[in-house]
Amino acid sequence: MLKKFDPNIMAFLCNWCSYAGADLTGTSHFHYPPNLKAIRVMCTGRINPLMVAAAFRHGADGVLISGCHPGECHYMEGNYLARRKIFVFRNLLEFVGINPERLQMSWVSASEGKKFSNVVKEITEKIKKLGPLTTFDE
């Protein structure tokens, strides 16, 4: 029998909003699937898309990048810069034949514990539907 697919999802969460939001999810006892592995970064603006590629290469089936809402970046514009970079990178992924839905982005503030749990639920469902990423299997 086929083993049930349990996706690996890597999350890069910004220190000031989304990581605190994820904390709030926990302290508020909102549930979310345990597939997410979070890495705290100071700002989404520091995320090099090659980190995303490396996550895929090393076994992630999906990647989430989450930061402050537009206009609320602790460093003024880091999330705006990230949005551009990730938008372009998603297009590149799609062009080489990797489903861009595997790379998701969300704006979650420190007070949005509920939203964070919903985002993770939704993304996990999405990746489950897409199945394992086999592109980097060799």
Partner: peptide, 16 residues
């Protein structure tokens, strides 16, 4: 340079 600048109206609809 492209990635050193931004426009608040950049595409946002792919983001949760």
């Amino acid at each position: 340079p492209l990635f050193a600048s931004f426009n608040p109206k950049d595409p946002n609809d792919f983001i949760f």
